[in-house]
Amino acid sequence: MSTDDTSDPAVRVRDLRKDYGHFHAVDGISFDIERGETFALLGPNGAGKSTTVEILEGYRERTSGEVSVLGQDPRHAGLAWKARLGIVLQQTGESGNVSVREQLAHFASLYPNPRDVDEVIAAVGLEEKAKTRIKSLSGGQRRRVDVALGIVGRPELLFLDEPTTGFDPEARRQFWELIRSLSREGTTIVLTTHYLDEAAQLSDRAAVIAGGRLIEMGPVHELGPAEARIPIVRWRDASGLHEERTETPAARVAALVAAHGELPELEVIRPGLEDIYLDLVATAEAETRAQTPTQEQTRVDA
């Protein structure tokens, strides 16, 4: 794929720190992202996700730690390195007095080996808007232009920061298909998202960041402590609502029905990524608060 050693991970981060004054926005994070992998970064607003990603993209300086992206330190990497990246920023921006097609053609011309402009427009579902000025598009359509601009340079490594904000459900499905096809072509993808179903759908592995620390990392379906994934049986009886975690929910339900007959609100809940994620974040935040009761609350970035 590239001139550097392909056995190296696409991204390598060791003990990354970023301080703003006394505030530790990123507080010692380490992880690797393998080539061809789709990696999701999850976390609440202000957790340090965007700061981390922007350090990887070369937008921000770090306070300390080691970072290697496609074999180079983003701090010193040049144009040839940027040509191998695709970046979809969180903020949609554009003066907008150009058509979708003109903008994509212009950005394609900046890269040594771009994708076909019309194919990219089709891939993001904007064929009918190709000749429309960007300023006349809806928010969701502009977001698709952002994604199109991020992939038109045929990146080896694609950063997606909250890519589907403002998408309708159909557009999100379509976007997921696009990301899967990029992944099949070997593109390494770093996805930051608030939509946990999106992370579950797309990513091979996910990391959860809270309070500038990496609190969990692994394959999406193994995230969180094992007990967090134990199914819950919930029912209501005369004494109120009951919840019980059990590895054998069917047997538990059978026993309940045998003892009480038909029960109102009886359900078996298999905790989804969202439940596990919320648990993880809540636990981490409680710990942080316990450790540093008077830390200032200034959040420098989202």
Partner: peptide
Amino acid sequence: AVERSDGTLKRLAGTPLP
């Protein structure tokens, strides 16, 4: 000044445009 605030410069900074 407008390009700096509307994100145009940031986007260009992420491309291989000298």
